[in-house]
Design a protein around this nucleic acid. Structure first.
Lengths: 180, 180
DNA sequence: AAGTGATGCATCGGATTGATATATAACATT
DNA sequence: AATGTTATATATCAATCCGATGCATCACTT
C-alpha cells in the first residue's frame, strides 16, 4: 500500500500546499474517492519528508494568522514520487461496514435492515449528484477525470445494486423472523 | 470502522474456529471482498476477547498436531456482536493504489500506463470468473449471497470502466509526451 | 530423502487511526 | 455587544493495525 508520505508528495507535485490543504485534497478533491489520510498521519509524514530533503518549507510572509506552513516539493521529492508511482500497485480493497453488517442480516430486525440500506442509497445518490455537477464544471487533468469517472461508475453500480436487491434481503429476513 | 474484535465475533457466530481459520474467512469467504484482517491483528483480538469473556477456548482433543486452538463465542460475545451490528455503519471506502497512480498519469510513460491498466483488467476478470462459479455452487445464507452479489457488481463495474476508458487515458498521455 | 506447500501459532517495529487540544479569523445570530 | 458556529491551521497521543518474519508439523510430490 502507498504510504502517506507518497500521498503528500503527490499533492505537492501539483503545487505548494500546507498540511491543512493537503488534508482537504483527500476530503474533497478527486483523490478523495480512493485515498485517505488524516492530520495524525499527514503532519508526521511532512516532518519525515523535510528530514529526507524531499520537501522544503517556504518562508512564511509573516501575515500574522496562525502560522500557516507552506511546503514545496524538491527534485529529490519528485524522484521519490516517480519511484513510488512505477511500483506495481497493490490490489484494490473496499472496506465496507455495511456489507459486513448485511452478511449477518439474519441477526437483525428486518425493519432495521431496510432502513440502513435505504439510508445508504440516499448517501450514494447524493454523492453521485455532487460528482455529476463538479465533473462538468471543475477543471481537471485527464488523469483526474479518469479517476473521477471511475468513482462515479462505482457509486452508480453500488447504488443500483442496493436498489435492485434490497427487497430480496429484507424479504428473506422477514421469513426467518416469522419462523422464529 | 468496525474493529477486528467484532470481525472475529462475526466469524465465530457462524461456528467454532481457530485463528487460522478466521484468517481464511477473510481471505476466501464472502467477507473477503469487504473486510480484512491479518494474523497480527487477529491473535491479539482473540486474546482480548478471551479476557472480556466474549469467547472461550475449547479444550483441544490432544490430537497432537501443532496445538490448534478452537474458539467459541459466548452469550456475552453474541450480545457484543449485536451491539456492534446495530451501530450506524461508517461510510464505505475504496483504497486503490492504481487510481492514485493513474491520477498522475501525465508523469508516467504511456506504455507503462497501458500495461498496468491491462494487468488490472485481467485481475478483475479472473476474480469475476471465480465468483461466478462459486456463487452457483457454494451454499450461502441470504446475507452472504447479497454481499457476494455486491462484490460481483462492483468488480464488473470497475473492469468495464477500465476497458472503456483505457484508451482515452493512454491517448492523452501520448499527446502530452509528444509535446514535451 | 529432499523439497514444496498447506496448516497453525505467535511476535514485533513501524505506521495509521481517531480523538483530542489549542488558537485565530470570519460570519451569523440574538 | 455578546455569543455561537464554522473554517482555518498545527500538533499530539493512546490504541490499534499492518506487514514481515520466525518457528514447527504434516501431507504430498519428485
Amino acid at each position: 500500500m502507498i504510504d502517506v508520505k507518497t500521498l503528500c508528495l503527490g499533492v505537492l507535485s501539483r503545487g505548494d500546499a500546507s498540511g491543512y490543504e493537503i488534508r482537504k485534497e483527500f476530503e474533497e478533491g478527486p483523490l478523495s474517492h480512493f485515498s485517505d489520510a488524516g492530520f495524525g498521519s499527514i503532519y508526521p509524514a511532512l516532518k519525515r519528508l523535510l528530514d529526507e530533503g524531499q520537501i522544503v518549507m517556504l518562508p512564511h510572509n509573516g501575515d500574522g494568522r496562525p502560522d500557516k506552513k507552506l511546503y514545496r516539493i524538491t527534485p529529490a521529492g519528485r524522484h521519490a514520487l516517480y519511484q513510488a508511482l512505477i511500483k506495481t500497485p497493490s490490489a484494490d480493497k473496499l472496506r465496507s461496514d455495511l456489507m459486513f453488517i448485511l452478511s449477518f442480516g439474519h441477526l437483525l430486525p428486518p425493519r432495521h435492515l431496510d432502513r440502513i440500506i435505504g439510508d445508504r442509497i440516499s448517501d450514494y445518490r447524493q454523492m453521485i449528484a455532487t460528482l455529476e455537477v463538479e465533473g462538468s464544471t471543475a477543471h481537471r487533468t485527464p488523469g483526474e477525470r479518469f479517476v473521477e469517472g471511475m468513482g462515479l461508475a462505482i457509486y452508480r453500480a453500488v447504488a443500483g445494486y442496493l436498489e435492485e436487491h434490497r427487497h430480496e434481503l429484507v424479504a428473506a429476513a422477514l421469513m426467518e423472523s416469522q419462523v422464529a
